[in-house]
C-alpha cells in the first residue's frame, strides 16, 4: 500500500554564527498510511516539532525527502499542501475573526470558493460540536474548544494527511478525551495522522505505531503493544510512586522510553 506520508532520511541542522551547529533531526525515516495514526514520542527538544515542521514544509530540511501523497513537499509545496492539514503546537487561530468566519477565511488559502467553504465550515463545526459558538470570537472559547477549532480548521481542505503537534498539551482531561474521540473518528475515515506527543496515554490510545525519538533519531518504532512486550515484557512492573509506597502496574510506553534512553519523559 502506498504511503500517504513518506519521510526519508530527514536531517535538519540549525546553524548560527554564535553557536556550534545543532543537529535537531538526524536521519529520520517513516511512512504513514491512509487510516493510520503514527506517533512521534519523545521529550521536549527531542526533535519532534522540527520533524513536524519539515513535514509541513515550514522548515527546509538540510537533507532528506518528504512526500505527501507522492508529492515532494520541498519541490511542489503548493500541490503537496493541498492534501495537508496542520494543527500546530502554538495556538494560531485568527483572533480577528469569528469561529465561522475564520473557517471560511482559512479555506480561501486553499482556493476553495466561498459557498463551498461555508458549507464545509458548517459541517465541520457541527461535527466538532462548535456550531453554537459559530458567531463568537476566538477569545470566547475555552482551551478545549480552541484546540477543537484548530483541528476543525485543519480539516477544511479535506486533507489526506493531518499533522498534529502536541494537540492536547495544556488541556484538561475531559477536553483531551473529547479530542481523542474526534481524532479516532478521523482516522477511521481514512485520514493519515502524524501526531507528536509527550503523553504516554495519548500515544497508547491513539497511535497504531509509535516512533520513540531521542536526540533527533528514531531509536525504536513499532505498535505500542509490541514495543512494550519487546522491551519490558508482559508482566507487571514495580514502581515506587511515593517514598515507601510501591505499586504493581502494567508496563507502558514510558517504561520503554526509560529503558531505551535512560531519560525521563516530562
Amino acid at each position: 500500500m502506498e504511503s500517504s506520508l513518506s519521510v526519508r532520511n530527514l536531517r535538519k541542522v540549525y546553524r548560527s554564527k554564535r553557536h556550534e551547529p545543532l543537529v535537531a533531526v538526524d536521519g529520520v525515516s517513516f511512512d504513514v498510511s491512509a487510516g493510520e495514526c503514527f506517533g512521534l514520542l519523545g521529550p521536549n527538544g527531542a526533535g519532534k516539532s522540527t520533524t513536524m515542521k519539515c513535514v509541513t514544509g515550514f522548515f527546509e530540511p538540510t537533507e532528506g525527502l518528504v512526500e505527501i501523497e507522492g508529492i515532494d513537499v520541498q519541490r511542489e509545496p503548493k500541490r503537496a499542501r493541498q492534501h495537508l492539514g496542520v494543527c500546530s503546537q502554538d495556538d494560531s487561530l485568527d483572533t480577528d475573526f469569528t469561529v465561522f468566519d475564520q473557517m471560511v477565511q482559512f479555506a480561501s488559502f486553499f482556493g476553495i470558493g466561498r459557498r463551498e467553504a461555508e458549507s464545509r465550515s458548517r459541517e465541520l463545526l457541527e461535527r466538532f460540536q462548535l456550531s453554537s459558538k459559530a458567531g463568537e470570537l476566538v477569545e470566547a472559547l475555552s482551551g478545549g474548544m480552541r484546540r477543537r477549532l484548530q483541528v476543525a480548521r485543519a480539516l477544511v481542505n479535506r486533507p489526506r494527511v493531518l499533522v498534529l503537534d502536541e494537540p492536547t498539551t495544556g488541556l484538561d482531561p475531559e477536553a483531551r478525551r473529547t479530542l481523542w474521540e474526534i481524532l479516532a473518528e478521523q482516522r477511521r475515515s481514512g485520514l493519515a495522522i502524524l501526531l507528536s506527543t509527550h503523553y504516554m496515554e495519548e500515544a497508547e490510545r491513539l497511535c497504531d505505531r509509535v516512533a520513540i525519538i531521542h536526540r533527533g533519531r528514531i531509536i525504536d518504532c513499532d505498535t505500542p503493544e509490541k514495543l512494550i512486550a519487546r522491551e519490558i515484557g508482559r508482566g507487571p512492573v514495580d514502581e515506587e510512586i511515593r517514598p515507601g509506597v510501591k505499586i504493581h502496574r502494567p508496563p507502558n510506553l514510558e517504561d520503554v522510553y526509560l529503558k531505551l534512553t535512560g531519560a525521563r519523559l516530562e
Partner: peptide, 8 residues
C-alpha cells in the same frame, strides 16, 4: 505561520 503551511 498558520497561512504558510497552506498552499500560500
Amino acid at each position: 505561520q498558520a497561512i504558510s503551511v497552506t498552499p500560500v
